[in-house]
């Protein structure tokens, strides 16, 4: 018979194996999308939060979370909450390391708000800090396209948000 604390840990472990559909090198836990887990007997309630308002992956994430927990819990409930709004500050240290290893720069330094924006700390490939923005928008809502002026490689950057 496992204790309630164990079952909560089980749920988090299972969630840690659910990859983000658009950034599959990191899990929904790494990204801070999975916010809360509550277990009551054989029933688990997972609270998730969307990254951007129009994130098209939200439904898929909900489906994947459900599928991952279905083998362990009889009833899986997924709640979507908007507030407090997701921020890249919730990406875990492990998530940041995993992003970098797959060639995606994790959120970097925030400059003054609005018109100035933010920038990656370093090129995820060679580590050089001499990088420049190619486009403020990238292949997904959460990324921008940058390039390294040292190794000349372009790379994705998860915008500080």
């Amino acid at each position: 018979m496992s204790s309630p604390r164990d079952t909560v840990r089980d749920a988090w472990d299972l969630l840690g194996q659910v990859p983000d559909p658009e950034l599959p090198t990191v899990s929904v836990v790494d990204l801070g999308i999975a916010r809360e887990v509550a277990v009551d007997g054989q029933r688990v309630v997972v609270t998730i939060t969307p990254t951007y308002s129009g994130c098209p992956a939200m439904r898929e994430i909900e489906h994947d979370v459900r599928a991952a927990l279905a083998g362990r819990f009889a009833v899986v409930e997924v709640r979507i909450v908007l507030s407090p709004p997701w921020t890249t500050d919730w990406i875990t240290p492990q998530g940041r390391a995993r992003l970098t290893r797959s060639g995606i720069a994790p959120p970097g330094v925030r400059l003054l708000p609005l018109l100035t924006g933010d920038r990656p700390a370093a090129c995820p490939r060679c580590g050089s800090a001499t990088v420049e923005e190619l486009s403020g928008f990238g292949s997904t809502a959460c990324k921008a396209l940058w390039r390294c002026l040292a190794c000349r490689e372009p790379f994705d950057y998860v915008k500080a948000h």
């Binding site: 969307p50 308002s53 129009g54 098209p56 928008f137």
Partner: peptide, 10 residues
């Protein structure tokens, strides 16, 4: 397209 997606989500 990205801006459209955000605004559509709103």
């Amino acid at each position: 397209a990205n801006v459209a997606l955000d605004v559509l989500g709103q």
